[in-house]
């Protein structure tokens, strides 16, 4: 299949934690992305290997990571890998994105959310603010407790 809009546009993004203008470009599949030299947006499915994108991070402006089911946690590793390798563009979680997974997703580097079903915004805000601290390092700026302990 060639590149086509998979259905997520700017209107579908419910939560966004970036200052820059939201990219309104269509994301293509990983295979399709790798086949062309000018695509700027890609969509990762759980079975895709995010490492295939590493040589091309510089031209990427939007990466969507699809969660067909919230219980499939591969997208968390994909997101963190991309951030660890220097991707700074928009990282958008799409699909079965729920309130109680938002915080872990933020910690793994997601900065935009386009849930299939809109989230209750008060619940989402509460879930994101629930914990003051974290135990371990991830792809966010949070300083782990063990670093705070030893200044």
């Amino acid at each position: 299949m060639a590149d086509f809009d998979l259905g997520t546009g700017r209107d579908d993004v419910q939560l966004r934690f970036r200052e820059d203008e939201q990219a309104s470009i269509a994301a293509v599949t990983v295979d399709s992305f790798l086949d062309q030299t000018d695509a700027e947006a890609v969509r990762i499915e759980p079975g895709d290997d995010a490492r295939d994108l590493l040589p091309h991070l510089a031209r990427l402006r939007l990466v969507e990571v699809n969660f067909p089911s919230y219980t499939d946690g591969r997208g968390y590793s994909a997101a963190r890998l991309l951030r660890e390798h220097g991707y700074t563009g928009e990282l958008r979680a799409v699909g079965d994105v729920l309130v109680d997974q938002l915080r872990y997703m933020r910690r793994c580097g997601f900065d935009a959310f386009a849930p299939e079903r809109p989230l209750d915004e008060a619940d989402a805000a509460a879930a994101l603010e629930r914990y003051d601290h974290v135990y371990q390092a991830a792809a966010d700026e949070a300083v782990p407790i063990w670093n705070l302990r030893h200044g």
């Binding site: 219980t71 946690g73 968390y76 590793s77 997974q101 135990y135 371990q136």
Partner: peptide, 14 residues
């Protein structure tokens, strides 16, 4: 224990 508690990447393992 501390490392694995609320580990954001490994909460939805296979």
């Amino acid at each position: 224990r501390q490392w694995s508690t609320f580990h954001p990447e490994f909460a939805y393992l296979p």
